[in-house]
C-alpha cells in the first residue's frame, strides 16, 4: 500500500486524524499531513476507512 494525498483540495475536516493518527496529521492550518506513506499491513483497514470517510476524497492508494 502506497498512500498519496491531494493537499490542495483537503478541507481540513480532520476525520483521517481521528481514524489513523499514526498515518495522518493536520498542519497548523488544518490541512492533512501524511506521516507514513507506506503503512504496515495492520494499518490498512484504518487507512481504507479514512479513504472512505474523507469528505473531500483527497486520500488515494496505489
Amino acid at each position: 500500500m502506497k498512500i498519496s494525498i491531494d493537499t490542495d483540495n483537503c478541507c481540513g475536516a480532520g476525520q483521517c486524524v481521528l481514524i489513523a493518527p499514526e498515518i495522518f496529521d493536520q498542519d497548523d492550518d488544518g490541512i492533512v499531513i501524511l506521516l507514513d506513506p507506506t503503512p504496515s499491513d495492520e494499518m490498512h483497514d484504518a487507512v481504507e476507512d479514512a479513504i472512505a470517510i474523507c469528505p473531500a476524497d483527497v486520500i488515494h492508494v496505489e
Binding site: C11, V17, G30
Partner: peptide, 15 residues
C-alpha cells in the same frame, strides 16, 4: 469556499 474555509480551519483541528 476553500480560501475562506482555510482562514478558519486552524481553530478547529483535532489538535
Amino acid at each position: 469556499h476553500g480560501r475562506r474555509r482555510r482562514m478558519l480551519t486552524h481553530s478547529f483541528t483535532v489538535k
